[in-house]
Each structure stands twice: as C-alpha cells, then as structure tokens.
Design a protein around this nucleic acid. Structure first.
Length: 911
RNA sequence: GCGGAGGUAGCCGAGCCAGGUCAAAGGCGACAGACUCAAGAUCUGUUUCCGCAGGGAUACGCCGGUUCGAAUCCGGCCCUCCGCACCA
C-alpha cells in the first residue's frame, strides 16, 4: 500500500459521502465523539491515537450495520492562540524562527512561509492555518469523520450556542459571583496564565496562603508572614532583611511595618493598609516585640535570607522547625536556642538531623535548604503533634493546630491572611507576577447538591472503559467545587452577564457535541436571521414550544429532528488528562441541562503515547508530526500499530523496532491475500478446512465481543493475528490455502477494514469487484455453533497429543517410526466419572484397583463432548504429517492395573 | 499527604473481579532446524531447572494469613505511574 493508493480511497469515500450519514430510522444510530483539538499547533503521533481508536470503533459499528456519526470541530478559545499572536506581533525573532522551521513541513516556497508567518499576528489566521493542517492530516489517515458538520469555537454561531447555554445554567441557579485569588500582573493590569509566565510551563507557579501575624511593639508592630502559623509557640525572634525597603502603615487601627513590595500585593488582595511612610527598619533591630497568643517577648534581628519581595518581607523565626531559621540563627551568633514544639514519629528527620546529613553550611545553601524544608514540612504536617509547650493547643495534630491557631489569631485581631506565589515569577515581558483577589469572579457552581445528585445518577447509568473510571468519576464529582468560568482576557464567547469577561475555555466546551447533530440547519437559520435567538435553541435542544418561528420553521424542525435522532453521545473517547476537568464538566453540564434520555452513554479513556521510550516533547526532540506519518509509514500501518501495540487505556510507545514488526505482519497479510485465487469449485471439507472455518467464526465472534467492550487491541489481534496463525496451522494440517480463503475472505476483509481500511478496500476490489466499498459493507451475523466448538476442542486435543509425543521423544532422545494410540472406552469413562464424582463405592473390586493409576494422571483427564476415537481417526493424517510417524489407533482396551487410557488422555506407545 | 491505577518469565503484555483445567495467551527478541551458494523473508521447533515415556521441582514485587489447593482472596511492607483545578 502506498500513500497514493490510500489517497485514492479517501477520495472515493468522500465522493460517495459514506461518512456523512443522515437520519435512517431503520438503523440503530451511533454517535461517537472525541474532544476537539486546540488549533494552535499541528498534532503529533500522540494526538492521533485517540482519533485512530475512535475511527476504528466508528468503522466497527458501521460494519455492524449501525448508522454511525463521527464528527469533529476545532477549539480556539482561551489564551494560547492569543499569546502566540501577540508574540508574533511583537516581532519576537525566536518564535518566528521556530515556526519558520515548523512550517516547512507544510508549505513549499519560502515566500509562502513568510506570508503565512506575517498573517500569524492575527489569532484567527493561526487557528485557521492549523485547523486546516489537522484536517489534512486526519484525511490522510483515513478517518471516517463527517466533515460537513465541522465548526470552530470562534464562530458566531458557536458563541450564540454557548451564550444560550450560560443563560440556561443561570436559570438553573448555577452562575455565581465571588472573590477568588488569581495570578496577576499589576504593570500589565492583567490576569496571567501559565503561558504568560516566564518558564511557566516547566516550573509551575501556584498560589499559597500565608498568615500574617502582628507582633506588637512599643511604637510600631511587625507584620510577619508565615506559611506555618501553628509554629507560633516556637518563636525565638523575628527576622527582617538588611537590604529591604520597609514602610510603616496603618492596618485595622494598628501601626504595622511591612516591606514596600508587600504594599501593592495587599492592596490587590483587598486588604486595606493606609498612610504608608518609609521607615528605617534597622532602627528597630534588637527592639522587643510581643508574640501573640503566647505573650512572650522576642527581639528583631537581621538576616540576608529574608526576601523583601516575599510576603511582608518580615518573618518570625522558629529554628526548632524551620531549617532556614535554624541556619540563619547559627550565622547570626545572637545566641538563641531552638524551641521544640512539635513531636514527630521517632526516626523522622528533624531540622538538626537534616542540617547534618545534608551538610548544610548556611543560608547560602539555598537548594539544600529547600529540599530539607520539604522533608521537614511533610513529616511534621502529616505526622506531627503539638507537644506540651503549646498551651491550649497541646496534643492537637499539626493540621488541626494550624487551622485553630490561624482562626484564633485572626479573631484576636493579631493576624490576617494574604496570598503569595509559590515562587518568584515574572511575565514574559519581565514584570513581577503577584496574587490578586478578584472580587467579582464568576463561577459555575458545581457544588450544588441537586446537581451532584443528578450527575451521580448520570454516571451510574453510563459505561466507562476501563470500568474502574466509573468509580473515579463519582469521586471527581464529589470533589468538584465552584469553578471560575470567565476570564478577563483570551479568545472566546463574551460572558453574557458581564461584558468585561470572556467565558473560560473549558467552560465553553461542555455540551457542544449536541451541536454536531444539527449544525447544518442551524447554519441556515443563522445566515437567514444573522442570529440564533435563545428560544430557538430551547426548542431544538430542550423541546420547548416555539411560537415565533422567525420564518425558519423548515430549518428549525429539521434541526429538531436531527437532534432527536442523534443525541446523546454513545461514546466519547479521550486521553486521561481530560478526566477530572473536561469530562467532569461535560457530564455535569449534561446533568444540569438535559433530560436523562440525552445523557452520554459511555466514556472510554485512551492512553498516552510515548516516543522512543520518552514523553513526547519538543525539548526531547522526539515529536513525530502526524503530517509525516502517511507518507513515511502509510496510514494503515499507523492505524494498525495504534490498534495492536497496547490496550486502549495503556501507554503506547512509538518506536521503529515495534513499527517494523507490525509492518512485517502487515506485509505477510497483504501478500497472502493478494496471492489468493478463487478456487474453480469449492472442495469438500476436510478436518483442517472444517476446523479453520469453525475457528474463524470463533475469532470473529471474539472480535465483535472485544470491540463492543472497547478492547480494540484484543479485537484486532483476534481477527488479524489469530486468523493468520490459524491459516498457517490449517495449511500445516494439509488444507489448501485458496480453499481456506474462499470461505472466509469477504467477512475477513470487512472485519479487518476497521483497522486498515485502505488495504482492505484494495483487496476487496481485487477479489470482489462490483460489490461496492468494503467501508460500507456489513458483517454477517452467523455465530459459533455447537459443532464449531467441538471441532475447535478436538483440534486442541490433537495438538495436545502431538506435544506429548514430542516431549517423549525429547526426553528419551530416541527416534521412533511408529505411534500407537489407545483411546479410553466406555468402561474407563464410567470409572473416571465415578472417581471424579466421589462415588467409588459403585465400582467393582477389580475396577477399584485402577484408581491409583487414575490419580497419577488426574490432572490431564478431561471428558470431551466429542468422540476421541473419531477425532483421532479424522486427524490421523495430521498426526502423521506433523510427527513423521506411522500412526495406528485403537479403542476400548481392557482395564489394567498399571497403565490405562483415560478420557482426554489416550495411551501413547512409541516404537 | 489525599485520591486512583499498577508491580506477571529477556522485553512488551493477557490472566486476577467469579481460587483448581496456569510453567501462565499473544507479540517481540534469542537459539536450533528446514529452505538458500549465502543473507533476508518464510516455515518448524525450543526458550526456569531437572528428567532415557507424556513426569517432577521452583516460580507471577516482598512477608505473612485463609484454603485440600492462591498469579488469582485477606493483612502488612516495599516500589512505580497518574490526578490534585481555573490550565488547554
């Protein structure tokens, strides 16, 4: 198979429109979806896997006679495309160079590339370009996608749909407003996402909550920030930075000292600090301050490890439980001693033991200090108990004490909360990233009990592949809280209740599969009216009565019919990273908006793809783009590889060694089928022929069963590899290949067309000309008969005997010329049955003498449904052929005390 | 830490839910033989150890338990992977 031939078939499929189904009341409908890709880049072999799996499943359901719809669309909402366009517009040379290289895969001339790069200052141009790349890649892989229904999330029509959806969520009381901490850049006046932060993708920035504790002094108080308020009883002193700029300001009636950097953060977080005045904090050094709750007095000292830019630029020192404080104290030489206030399980690392084992030399040893801090934090936080020095908090666990002490400090007016980034961070343009609290953040309230209850019911009623994910989904639903659903920037749909906001990009992608069903007539409505009013969506999707048809009654009714016929989604296949976010929202929104008969039917999880043993990433240089696949390997090899190299949910590794072996098998298959000639007349069945046909029916039925249960690998293995092995076996048993083929070839090609459709089409055309396309053929329904099972069992019985004979030959190391087989008769059968059922008392005394002989071989005794003697007679030639021995068979030998034939285990004599 | 999944022969990977028919499917790799001048491809066989008649011993992360019987059930331990949110 070459890419050109593959292309030819793709064009045929498109011409005949066989993947663009309409309503067919005579067939069961099957709607299969995969989350749409984000159109900011081309896709690689990893992305292709989910779609490959989906296409194999789609094609399977098609050959099972179902009316299959496999649609797709493109995601353009959110910040990445926008950020990319901005960088291009800013004239960033690095990114231009990067994409110049990248575009060479898709565009021929340098001029074309430069023009395209120029156009990338517009987000829409980026999205369009990569959407087209993806479409082309997918077409070249032979995916049976209905392209007539594609759309993208930047289209007005999509945004009308999302707007409608948000109105309905609001009607259900699920849209809420509240305050929420986010990453923010004051200089740019923007919320910042991962892509806006320098190294944000490799070194994630998260938000941490600090407790700012007020240490009262004579004229001013110190506001010291801590991640661990529970350590307050271990305070020995307070630290400030000798290099920091500090200000005095008023908070809650008190005069407090904080770093200049903290001012802006606090105001962004809605904490009011007024009248800031510069103060020379050094003057306060060695002054005494009062520790809240404990009432003890501690002094202020300087240490360079304190970062003015972190928190308030002031920290209180707990050398008993903080490595930094311990190291700083040792350096300072002020002669204070650590106070131990937390007990940990014996054997756990402590501040002192870590300083020793890690050889920490001082506060400059930042990397080791960080590592040690993590270790101490974990063991104290999860196992620690407050000891008797903690006043009323003695005996509490660290977790409990933290909450209680924080609450008590806040109630007392001795503390407030502030947020801080988990590491110092800058935007790509170099401005600091801080945490701001948005007072009017919009949420979707996924915590609503009625919604959770509905969602649990929905989950209970659907299938998950693998099954264990059903349990996980129940847990995810329990865990969901309010989700911020709008942002101040990014592409997407305007938030309908507040124009300043844009709907966040996962929140706009929940029930959109509904749109696939009827996008065509809705487009018509939109082009007629220049709008799609919400009540039309209400009518189409929720069946609400519609008075004013806006002159589009035909289109509206068409859309309603389509939606009713196709929706819900029968299966949605997606990679695991979508599980606890996208899939959860997908299910929650369906539960919130649709009646139960429109709920999703199943979710299948597709595993990750690695490349040459490593996670696929640009930095590792192991990205293999989908564009190269069809040319370099052919679509069918890719598809077959994805199907058979691992179970749907487990990891597939893309590497040349495994690819080569799949290719080898594939070549074998093609050669076999190409050499086939229809025999002039079908020969009368031999044992081998009958067995092969029976076995094929069993392979086919196992294929169907596995595919139904989304075990694509097992399914394809049984219909591809196993049938080829059977074929070889049957030939070895003396059957004629063409004869074997002629009885199964058409069904075989139809089944195999799911995985390798192009190859199947070519072979189909060659051997069954004039019978249409294999892609639209339907598999027969014949199952496995009792007779088939007997044949299969009887062949396995023959194989067992062949193995036994071989083993004897191997062990004795001799060669033989004759094989005599003695099969058990009626008497042996009766004795065996009696022993097995424990009714030995029914046996005669002479019969009882053979029980010992039976027990020796009982492991191998099997009472078959077929007659062993007849089977051996039928298989005589096969035995002779495979063993190269002259074979004689006898039955009903009299019982003896030492050696008897038993059911399933004839006596073997070699000479 | 919490939640989830998992550790099976040289490798990948079934089996485990419903304990015996499991020395454990299938694939890859390796080895031997056939074919060939040769290589490749293909076919046949072998691939834990012992065994001159189809057998035995030891094995499914480690330790222990239940059972006549455990890869499969239970408990403990060790290790690996995934998710832990506003990010697509």
């Amino acid at each position: 198979m070459d890419p050109k031939t593959e292309h030819k078939w793709q064009e045929r499929w498109a011409e005949e429109g066989i993947f663009e189904p309409g309503i067919d009341p005579g067939k069961r409908k099957y709607l299969i979806t995969v989350p749409y890709p984000y159109a900011n880049d081309s896709l690689h072999v990893g992305h292709g896997r989910t779609y490959s799996t989906a296409d194999i499943v789609a094609r399977f359901h098609r050959i099972m006679g179902e009316n299959v719809l496999f649609p797709m669309a493109f995601h353009q909402s959110g910040t990445p495309i926008l950020a990319f366009a901005r960088r291009m517009a800013s004239g960033d040379r690095d990114i231009r160079e990067l994409y110049r290289e990248h575009l060479k895969e898709y565009l021929g001339s340098a001029k074309e590339i430069e023009n395209t790069l120029d156009s990338f200052t517009e987000p829409a141009a980026i999205a369009d370009f990569f959407s087209n790349v993806i479409i082309n890649d997918f077409k070249k892989l032979g995916f049976s996608i209905d392209w007539s229904r594609q759309f993208n999330t930047a289209e007005e029509i999509y945004q009308k749909f999302v707007t409608w959806q948000f109105h309905r969520l609001n009607d259900a009381g699920l849209i809420k407003k509240g305050s929420y901490p986010i990453l923010f850049c004051n200089e740019e006046g923007n919320a910042v996402g991962e892509d806006d932060i320098r190294d944000g993708d490799v070194d994630k920035v998260s938000i941490e909550e600090l407790t700012v504790v007020i240490f009262k002094g004579k004229s001013v108080s110190l506001a010291a920030a801590s991640l661990r308020p529970e350590t307050i009883y271990g305070t020995t002193n307070v630290w400030i930075s000798p290099e920091g700029e500090y200000v005095k300001c008023s908070w809650n009636g008190a005069s407090i000292v904080i770093s200049r950097n903290a001012l802006e953060k606090l105001s962004q977080q809605g904490i009011s600090v007024d009248d800031p005045e510069p103060i020379s904090a050094r003057e306060l050094v060695r002054h005494e301050f009062e520790v809240p709750l404990t009432g003890s007095r501690v002094k202020l000292f300087e240490s360079t490890f304190v970062e003015p830019a972190f928190g308030t630029g002031i920290v209180y020192s707990v050398p008993g439980h903080s490595i930094w404080d311990f190291a700083a104290l040792q350096e300072s030489g002020v002669g204070l001693h650590p106070i131990k206030i937390i007990d940990v399980v014996s054997g756990s690392e402590t501040v002192e033991s870590l300083v020793e084992s890690l050889k920490i030399s001082g506060t400059r040893d930042k990397v080791k200090l960080e590592e040690a801090t993590q270790i101490v934090y974990k063991s104290e936080f999860y196992q620690g108990k407050m000891n008797s020095l903690n006043g009323p908090y003695s005996g509490l666990t660290v977790t409990e004490a933290r909450e209680k002490i924080r609450a008590d400090l806040v109630r007392d007016g001795s503390a407030f909360s502030m947020y801080e980034t988990s590491r110092p961070a800058q935007t790509r343009t170099g401005y600091p990233v801080i945490v701001a609290v948005m007072k009017d953040q919009w949420f979707i309230d996924y915590s609503a009990p009625w919604l959770k209850e509905k969602a649990h019911k929905l989950v209970e009623g659907m299938s998950f592949y693998p099954d264990q994910y059903k349990k996980s989904m129940h847990e995810v639903i329990d865990w969901l809280r309010e989700r911020p659903c709008a942002r101040k920037r990014g592409l997407g749909t305007r938030f309908p209740f507040d124009n300043q906001w844009v709907i966040e990009s996962l929140s706009d992608s929940t029930i959109y599969p509904a749109l696939y069903t009827c996008i065509v007539p809705i487009r018509k409505i939109h082009s007629k009216l220049g709008d799609v009013p919400p009540e039309i969506f209400d009518h189409i999707f929720l069946g609400k009565p519609l008075k004013d048809k806006h002159g589009c009654s035909g289109e509206i009714e068409e859309a309603s019919r389509l939606f009713k016929y196709w929706y819900g989604v029968d299966i949605r296949i997606t990679a695991i990273p979508h599980f606890s976010n996208h899939l959860a929202f997908y299910l929650m929104n369906h539960a919130a908006l649709f009646p139960a008969d429109r709920y999703p039917g199943a979710i299948a999880i597709s595993g990750l793809v690695t490349s040459q043993g490593a996670k696929i990433s640009k930095s590792k240089g192991n990205v293999v783009s989908l564009t190269k696949i069809s040319g370099k390997y052919t679509a069918d090899i890719y598809r077959l590889f994805m199907a058979v190299s691992a179970d749907t949910s487990s990891v597939v590794d893309w590497n040349e060694t495994d690819l080569a072996s799949v290719r080898k098998k594939y070549d074998q298959f093609v050669n076999l089928v190409e050499e086939f000639h229809h025999p002039p007349e079908k020969r009368k069945g031999s044992f081998a022929q009958d067995w092969f046909e029976a076995s094929f029916r069993q392979r086919l039925s196992s294929f169907k069963e596995n595919m139904e249960k989304m075990r694509v690998r097992d399914g394809v293995v049984s219909v591809f590899f196993d049938v080829m092995n059977d074929l070889r076996k049957a030939e070895a048993m003396g059957a004629d290949r063409n004869n074997l083929f002629s009885s199964i070839l058409s069904e075989w090609l139809i089944a195999i067309s799911c995985a390798i459709p192009h190859t199947a089409e070519s072979l189909w055309q060659k051997h069954f000309p004039g019978m249409g396309l294999v892609s639209s053929a339907i598999l027969g329904t014949e199952g496995v008969s009792e007779k088939d099972r007997e044949l299969i069992e009887s062949e396995a019985y023959l194989q067992g005997i062949i193995e036994d004979v071989r083993e004897i030959g191997r062990v004795t190391g001799r060669t033989y010329s004759r094989l005599e087989l003695r099969v058990s008769g009626a008497e042996h059968l009766a004795i065996a049955k009696a022993i097995i059922s424990g009714k030995t008392e029914t046996l005669s005394p002479s019969q009882r003498k053979v029980i010992g002989d039976f027990m020796k071989v009982r492991k191998n005794v099997r009472i078959h449904d077929f007659d062993e003697y007849t089977s051996l007679r039928q298989g005589k030639e096969i035995l002779e052929k495979s063993l190269g021995l002259e074979v004689s068979i006898s039955r009903s030998v009299p019982t003896q005390t030492d050696k008897n034939p038993w059911p399933g285990r004839p006596l073997i004599f070699l000479s």
